[in-house]
Amino acid sequence: MKKQNIAAIFFLAPYMIVFVLFRLGPSIAGILISLTDWNIIGDITFVGLKNFETMFRSGHFWTALINTGKFSVIVVPAVVILSLALAVLFNQKLRFRGIARAITIIPYVLIPAVTGVIWNWMYSYKSGILNYYLENAGLKQVGWLIDKKYALISIAIVIIWSYLGYNMVLFLAGLQNIPEELFEAAVIDGATKRQAFMKITLPLLKPVTSLVITLSFINTVQIYDQIYVMTNGGPGTSTMTLVQYMYTSAFKDYDMGYGSAIGTTIVVILVVVYFVVNKLFRTEVD
């Protein structure tokens, strides 16, 4: 036992030093800094909950929170439904399905900021190809990124496009974990394929679904890169998210305490969502 303690120190030290310094430490420190007034150069003063008070009174904060909420409400259900559909399709015995799967994942491995650049060009108002097709179809052109009404949904589409492949892989793994006999037995017992899918496959996919929802949510709350190159929060504040508001507060206005308060809020949101999703999906399975 004692020998193992010493060995453990040897094996853990390199990772733990980096982990505590650059991950665990900062995660905890963020909460403490959010209780202070600090502009990096000057002194730190403890101000209690003042930053949160300012935050809740700020119109920008609510805009950012609502925009982040809008993104989640659009992206999460779309990702769950579409990636499940993709997984079911690519789980069929089709020729070239391996290649098809591989292609579907490609958007996920591209630099998100660069994905934004590529879509910028598609969404271009005057010379974008999407508007060209719309015009050809006899429809009105859309100001994808320059119209307040459409900017948020346009970016959401890019996010969905990027994350579908990743979540499809999760669902595929889930599908392949379900023993085929279960499905076949149900069909033999007279269930239609659709019934078997609804009554057997879907319930057994619940753990994966809960994972996909949680991950999509985390991913949506943290989106920043694509927005930075596509609209930078605009037009107006119509695509400004919490992460962007935090970035501006901390690194443009140098208000570390206030920025950390926003960061802490993001943490709270993520933790709450995690527990809610888990509660909803786990209890029904057990």
Binding site: F22, S27, G30, V221, Q222, M246, G259, S260, G263, V267
Partner: peptide, 17 residues
């Protein structure tokens, strides 16, 4: 920490660095 993306702790991280 699996739950927390870098966006959630990036400010203190910057201060440490």
């Amino acid at each position: 920490m699996l739950l927390l993306p870098i966006q959630a702790y990036v400010i203190p991280l910057f201060l440490v660095v």
